[in-house]
């Protein structure tokens, strides 16, 4: 035994170190993905017998208006959430100075990211609250007629996205602040001597050096947009009349809320969301893989 161990130690050791973590990850993450795929072909209330119904759940999705509303909202989320990237860059550039107290300013600007989305949601609900909310008052002051953002089908999703952007911009900002901190000063000086400034400097000299930060910013923003659940649940619970649902929320509603326990149908929605995410995840992984193997 001990001789075998001595000879094969280097080959066995990594797997022994991996075993506990990999086992946990497999049980709670990898295997459930396949189980969900399989459940999506069943009609199941979570307790009784699961009945195999083939692709019926997916066929039902095609005619489900609520599904399309959720899908549309997800697209809006994704498109608008990406605004966090330029906005975060803008704030980072604004704060990248060395004046007194700037460190405190940086941490306070970062503050929203540390707070739970539940609290962010409550803060913005208060902000938007009809009759007395700060935002409502502001609109009333400007247009003479306040808008209860969270009660209007046409505005509600945008109102929630703004709440989501708040912490997300803070996150992107801190990524770019770190990036800006590491921009090569000699290159900036050289470009300055060549007469580059403002937008040109930013576009041709600074942004290429910020590429790693931009990559991470885009990754976390895309994932964040598609994962949006907390804010929808806290601020509107999907309403009014389901108009602010997103796929992640609609799935939860179908599978676990008072609307019933349709595990199979919920799983089918989750599979669609997973497929959408997989497009992005594959892209990220592909790029990371390239970076790894090139090194």
């Amino acid at each position: 035994m001990s001789r075998y161990w001595k000879r094969n130690q280097l080959r066995l050791a990594p797997w022994l170190f991996l075993a506990p973590g990999l086992a946990m990850f497999a049980v709670y993450v990898i295997i459930p993905i396949f189980q969900s795929l399989s459940i999506s072909f069943y009609d199941w209330d979570g307790l009784g017998e699961a009945v195999y119904i083939g692709t019926d759940n997916y066929v039902e999705l095609i005619d489900d208006e609520a599904f399309y509303i959720s899908l549309k909202n997800n697209v809006i989320w994704l498109a608008l959430y990406l605004l966090a990237v330029p906005a975060g860059l803008f704030i980072a550039i604004f704060l990248n100075q060395t004046v007194r107290g700037i460190r405190i300013y940086k941490s306070l600007f970062f503050f929203p990211f540390v707070i739970s989305q539940v609290v962010v949601g409550l803060m913005f609900s208060w902000f938007y609250a009809p009759d007395f909310g700060l935002f409502y008052k502001l609109i009333e002051l400007i247009t003479g007629q306040g808008i209860a953002i969270l009660a209007e089908e046409d505005y509600v999703t945008y109102g929630i996205i703004v709440a989501g952007l708040w912490p997300q911009i803070a996150y992107v900002m801190i990524l770019y602040l770190t990036g800006l901190n590491n921009v090569a000063p000699d290159q900036v000086e050289a470009a300055r001597l060549d007469g580059a400034k403002g937008w040109k400097m930013l576009w041709y000299v600074i942004l290429p050096q910020l590429r790693p930060a931009t990559f991470i910013a885009v990754v976390v923003t895309v994932i964040g947009a598609l994962r949006s659940f907390d804010l929808v649940s806290i601020m509107t619970d999907g309403g009014p009349w389901g108009s602010s649902r997103v796929l992640s929320f609609y799935m939860y509603e179908q599978a676990l809320s008072e609307y019933g326990f349709r595990m199979g149908y919920g799983a089918a929605i989750a599979v669609v969301l997973f497929a959408i995410m997989m497009v992005f995840i594959s892209g990220f992984i592909w790029k990371m893989w390239r970076d790894e193997t090139e090194r």
Partner: peptide
């Protein structure tokens, strides 16, 4: 990176 709902 996977969505939580696929695990739920």
């Amino acid at each position: 990176f996977v969505p939580f709902q696929i695990l739920m």
